[in-house]
């Protein structure tokens, strides 16, 4: 079943043939046993048209008393009724998709069609069933779920699955700037004369500077 689901998602169609060999084998045996028919083509056609009579019979027996029996013609009639039921619902769901210009029939379309066609009692169990299916399948198949989500988003359909939050493991780029500057000591004059501003020697030095300035002024004149 899981492989089948996987195959069904990628091509977005069901051109892929059946992958349930065991079921088909059982169906073949059942059909041959019931029909006692040597025409393989006819048997194959019968298989394709109806659900296996063994499966149908088992389901019928679940709802009748233990001592009750079911005739072969009754099982065959129910086989035909079920195929008609599938076609009936499919037609309604397909029409809805065409009106809404969508290409893919999904579970909600089927449930809508069943509601429209008068099977109200079926709706609540089916909605619960579909919700459960989405939850479980979403947990099991992570990658196909993403594809499914994309399909739904593309089809403008609300996604009921709980989206798993993705953690962004981006590398932390912290810039580390180290300062190699070395603090230099303040400038300390080595000339002792400047350390004594009011000393006579200091005054004489100032006078000399003034003379130099006057000399420069005279030069300009």
């Amino acid at each position: 079943m899981e492989d089948e689901s996987h195959n069904n998602i990628l091509p977005n169609g069901f051109n892929t043939g059946s992958t349930e060999s065991p079921c088909l084998k059982t169906s073949t045996m059942t059909t041959q046993h019931n029909n006692n028919n040597n025409h393989q083509n006819h048997s194959n056609k019968e298989q394709d048209r109806f659900l296996p009579i063994a499966n149908v019979g088992r389901i019928m027996k679940k709802v009748i008393p233990p001592n009750g029996k079911i005739s072969k013609d009754a099982k065959e009639t129910v086989q035909e009724c079920v195929s008609e039921f599938i076609s009936f619902v499919t037609g309604e769901a397909s029409d809805k998709c065409q009106r809404e210009k969508r290409k893919t029939i999904n579970g909600d379309d089927v449930i809508w069609a069943i509601t429209t066609l008068g099977f109200e009692d079926y709706v609540e169990p089916l909605k619960t069933y579909l919700q459960k299916y989405k939850e479980i399948e979403g947990e099991k198949l992570n990658i196909p779920k993403q594809l499914r989500s994309e399909q739904r988003l593309h089809q403008h359909q609300q996604n009921h699955n709980n989206n798993h939050d993705e953690n962004n493991n981006q590398p932390f780029n912290g810039a580390y700037a180290s300062s190699n500057l070395i603090s230099q000591p303040p400038y300390v004059p080595t000339d002792q004369k400047f350390s004594l501003p009011f000393s006579p020697n200091s005054i004489q030095n100032q006078l000399r500077q003034q003379e130099q300035i006057d000399s420069v002024g005279h030069w300009y004149e």
Binding site: S5, F14, R49, T104, L130
Partner: peptide, 26 residues
């Protein structure tokens, strides 16, 4: 009920193009 057989019956409707994985389950 086998899903593959259900798919084949659904496919007999020529207007049907694609179905999601959940459709045969429903």
């Amino acid at each position: 009920l086998p899903l593959s057989r259900i798919k084949k019956i659904i496919k007999t409707d020529k207007d049907v193009k694609m179905i999601s994985a959940e459709t045969p389950v429903v």
